[in-house]
Computed example of a mutant assay.
Amino acid sequence: MDINVYLQRINYAGHVSVTLESLKELHRCHVMAIPFEALDVQWKRPIRVDLEDIFDKVIVNNRGGLCYELNYLFAHFLRTVGFDVTMVSARIFERGEFGPEFDHMALIVRLEEEEWLLDVGYGDLFIEPLKLRSTEVQLDQFKDYRVEQQPDGRFLLVEALKNSERFRNKYSFDLVPREVSEFVEQCLIKQTSPESHFVKNIICTIPTETGRKTILNNTLKVKSNNQTEQLKIESEEQMLEILRDEFAIDVMHTKERVMV
């Protein structure tokens, strides 16, 4: 892995050190620079949990990706520069229940006698790492979070809008170290199952300093300073222009259709 190319891709200009300050800035830069997107599912391009493929796609060709791509890549990068990283399985809470094991990949970093939850591959989530063993509400850029330890030893991530006391479940996870091969089956299901959110929908999203930009099917939604603007996407050409101009994803050369 070319560390300098990676750092350039995420717009990280500082010195990388195995410190909490550096970890927080790396996480922030990663989330702010690389979108969460499942465009390859719509384009019928297989997503392989292969490090070389992911590096070429995300870092060299300025794409985004799913959790299995982005968190796996970030984990490898962090290990390369000296961090103690574990990949863990998370079960996303949706429609009143938790999904299957390996539904989502998250990361745990052990640093300075503390454990931190990292996740650069969820979509709309925290911008900086969260302290794992803390009962306090942790303030993030746009939302508040809490990591709750459950009686069975698992952990539950919950979030709330700023200044709200109504927290909602995001996902449940444990600290069992996982190998990337264990996520392959769920990664395939998310690309092929008719019930998959990514099969049903075009999605691409990235935070900004003032909010978030999101494509969901034929709508671009831009949130900024608590104001939201929406634009209906009328054509494939317009979709490709928005991907290029708003998300720095240039796929004008592709012949695969983007619109559903």
Rank of each mutant, 00 (worst) to 15 (best):
V147N: 06
F198D: 09
I242G: 01
E159P: 00
Q238D: 04
V222E: 11
M239V: 00
I242K: 04
F155A: 01
K223Q: 13
H253E: 14
R212I: 06
L175N: 13
T205Y: 01
K232R: 10
P177I: 00
P151V: 03
L243M: 03
R154E: 12
K190I: 03
K221A: 14
T219S: 10
L220A: 05
A160V: 00
I242R: 07
E209M: 10
S193K: 14
S235C: 02
F247K: 04
I206P: 02
P151A: 05
S196L: 09
H197Y: 14
E241R: 13
K232L: 07
F173N: 04
C187D: 09
R257T: 13
D250W: 06
K170D: 07
T219I: 13
L231Y: 05
T210L: 07
M252K: 13
L243Y: 04
S224F: 01
L220R: 09
L156M: 14
I203S: 11
F167I: 08
G153Q: 08
I233G: 00
P151R: 07
E229K: 14
I202G: 06
A160P: 10
S164R: 07
P207M: 04
V251F: 04
S193F: 12
Y171T: 10
N218A: 06
V147S: 01
E234R: 11
L240Q: 06
T205N: 14
S181L: 13
N218M: 02
C204D: 01
N169I: 01
F183H: 11
F183C: 11
L156Y: 06
V180G: 04
C204G: 07
N217A: 08
L156Q: 12
Q227P: 05
N201T: 12
G211H: 06
E241F: 06
L157P: 06
F167A: 09
G153R: 09
L161I: 01
I202F: 02
I242V: 00
R178H: 15
Q149Y: 00
R154A: 12
Q150F: 00
L157K: 01
E148S: 12
V199E: 00
Q238F: 04
I242N: 03
R244T: 03
D250T: 05
T228D: 10
I215N: 02
Q230E: 15
G153V: 02
A248H: 11
E229P: 01
I203E: 02
L231S: 05
V147H: 03
L240R: 15
D245S: 14
Q149K: 15
L231T: 14
M239S: 00
I203W: 02
E229Q: 15
L231H: 12
T219L: 07
L240C: 04
T254Y: 04
T254K: 03
S193T: 11
L157W: 05
I202H: 08
S235Y: 00
E185H: 14
F155T: 01
K200N: 13
L231E: 07
N163Q: 05
E237F: 04
L161V: 03
E246D: 12
S181T: 15
I206F: 03
F183A: 07
V158S: 12
V184D: 15
V158G: 07
C187R: 10
Q238L: 02
K170R: 15
L157R: 04
Q227T: 10
L216W: 07
L161K: 07
F173Q: 08
S181P: 09
N217G: 07
E234G: 12
